[in-house]
Design a protein around this nucleic acid. Structure first.
Lengths: 207, 207
DNA sequence: AAAAAAATCAAACGTTTGTTTAAAAGCGAG
DNA sequence: CTCGCTTTTAAACAAACGTTTGATTTTTTT
């Protein structure tokens, strides 16, 4: 990955974060990157592939860390299912930690959050290509952790986890609407929220 | 509001839900509505104002119900702060209940969820114009309910509630990505999740 | 029934979109 | 220095965008 490609990806993060996928034009991106208009198509093939490359570039190290942590936890558990809290923690902590590493990681988060809820076309590509294995694996472990509950309830809880994560990714950096002033939350708060929420849902179904 | 305007709003719900604000063109919308291309500008002024009109048309009855429920609950509480669960319930139940009323309410939900995370320009208009009073009021009551906790923690919890709601609004109707199969959750599950989550966050801060 | 107002229509408006082209410039290796 | 390859560049591309126009039809008012 050469210098121009890096510049394009970093500019793309900012522009996609600020304007969304459709809202950011290739000219916006190349102007910010200081490159020619044609550079996106030359180096990545299309605007869409630039977006995907950007996502992969940032998310793959995070996902690798997640898989490593899961592996280690499963090893230690020695065959018994993990706690829900452990799974939640493994999914959230590497993500939130990456906020504080690097300058515009928050832009990337927002760009990914927006892009994934905005575009239907490559959302499915992304699921298959980048997130599919992660989702499948953790959904499976969730099923083991909640094995005495109906699959539908597991799905709901897993979905709640998903929206909480994507909710964090959507948040703006600055308090810009005058009503909600939000900083990126501590990983601990988010983990407590999701875990406590799931436990409450589970507790309510068996009276 | 005449017949053409209704047709346009309903078509807009579907198109904005499927393609997002920028992704759906005025020609997509008017074709689906069976009207002329110029009808959007004639009746609403612009594509953007059509979007806002669509949001208002659906969200205002919901918000009115929320305010009425809050009023009633405050009356009954007689000056004492409400439980967090009550506030969560008042915000969530009218929204989720509206899913089952009318044919394409789910499209509206998704359209609003997408539009609000996609567009920055009228997101702020929407906050000021449609959601501002609601957010302000419930944030204030949240503060009363959690009065022995720092404001920052209240903000975080309020934000968690917000992302959970907007997470529900983002969900697709069909299981379309092969990994996550999500139906719109019961109001009860969502309420339990958010309330339990907030309680867990609060509990963790005082050991 | 005539006049006034409102709504619809096909057509065209000027921009902006993502992408392509073909020539120019940069560059490492022999 | 030159060759072969990669990269950058300015220009142009067709297509799609939101919007406007002016004539025509429909509806309402008098």
């Amino acid at each position: 990955m050469n210098k121009t490609q890096i510049k394009l990806i970093e500019a793309a993060e900012r522009e996609f974060a600020d304007r969304g996928f459709h809202g950011a034009s290739v000219r916006d991106i190349t102007t910010r990157a200081g490159t020619n208009v044609a550079s996106i198509n030359y180096h990545f093939g299309s605007k869409e592939e630039l977006f995907l490359a950007m996502i992969r570039h940032r998310i793959e190290p995070i996902n690798q860390e997640r898989f490593e942590l899961l592996e280690a936890a499963l090893q230690e558990a020695n065959g018994t299912p993990l706690e829900v809290r452990s799974l939640v923690e493994i999914l959230i902590r590497p993500l939130v930690n990456s906020f504080s590493r690097g300058t515009n990681r928050k832009s990337f988060m927002r760009a990914m959050g927006r892009g994934m809820s905005e575009e239907t076309q490559f959302t499915s590509i992304l699921y298959k290509d980048v997130l599919g294995k992660l989702i499948k694996t953790f959904r499976y472990e969730f099923g083991r952790s909640m094995s005495d509950h109906p699959e539908e309830l597991v799905d709901h809880c897993f979905a709640f986890l998903g929206s909480s994560i994507s909710g964090v990714m959507h948040h703006r950096q600055k308090a810009d609407n005058g009503h909600m002033r939000i900083n990126f939350p501590d990983a601990d708060h988010l983990i407590n929220f999701v875990t406590g929420g799931i436990e409450a849902v589970v507790a309510a179904t068996r009276p």
